[in-house]
Amino acid sequence: MAALSLAGCYSVGLPSQPALPGDDFDYELAYAALPDGDYTWPAINYKSVDRKYWRQVVDYKSGSRPGTVVVDPYNRFLYWILSNRKALRYGIGVGRAGFAWSGDAQIRVKRMHPIWRPPQEMIARKPSLGRYWEEGFPAGLKNPLGARAMDLWQGRTDTLYRIHGTPDPSSIGRNVSSGCIRMWHQDVIDLFERVPLRTNVVVLSKEGEA
């Protein structure tokens, strides 16, 4: 459990967690090119992005239990709750679908190297994407879902809300036209390793409520 502690002040009680970023965290290493099975995700030019969007532990008051994921699409942050006062924060990019739903859900599906199927609404706007409907866009460096995807469900209902990687690192910290909740490959892999299936997720509304 030592990897979960930062200055010994909190722990979320989940085993086999990556170390939390502290004062001496090596961002150069964290955002370096990352070999991952058949792929190597490119290094992130993180210094060109506002530091607030880098992976970091922050003060964050929340009524959610430790181990909960809180998504704030309007401020473009995703929080992994550590205690009622601290959270691990990641910068995100938010696609149009990221504003389409808010509420409480669970991560019921976790996908490594996911394939992507465009929604019918997108195919209607761009018919050339229809070829990806049956077999999907193959996994890899150009896949719109990137290195990992986590699917949010309410009971037996798929909300169609996704937390996923992105081949466009410049979209982090921005509102973009497509996708749901985008993360740098290195960050979505880090989150993927922390959260088990059935992790509770709270997606905030514009008023800051679930």
Rank of each mutant, 00 (worst) to 15 (best):
E209M: 12
I163L: 12
R89I: 08
G37W: 01
N45P: 10
P144G: 14
R198T: 11
Y132L: 01
M150P: 05
P144M: 08
P73K: 01
I189R: 01
P167N: 07
L197K: 06
F192H: 11
Y31W: 07
N84K: 14
I189N: 00
D151R: 07
G91Y: 08
A19G: 11
Y31V: 05
D72A: 10
S16R: 10
P15K: 04
P144L: 10
N175L: 02
S5W: 00
M112A: 13
S128L: 09
N200M: 06
G93E: 00
W184C: 07
Y161S: 03
V57W: 07
K110N: 08
S62Q: 12
N143W: 01
Q106I: 06
S62W: 08
R55G: 03
V109F: 03
R96E: 08
A87G: 14
P66R: 07
A2F: 07
T68I: 13
S64L: 14
A2P: 02
G130A: 12
R55A: 09
G140C: 11
A210S: 13
N143R: 00
D50C: 05
N84G: 15
M183V: 06
Q106N: 04
A124F: 06
G37E: 06
S178R: 04
Y10M: 09
P114S: 06
V176R: 01
A87N: 05
S177N: 14
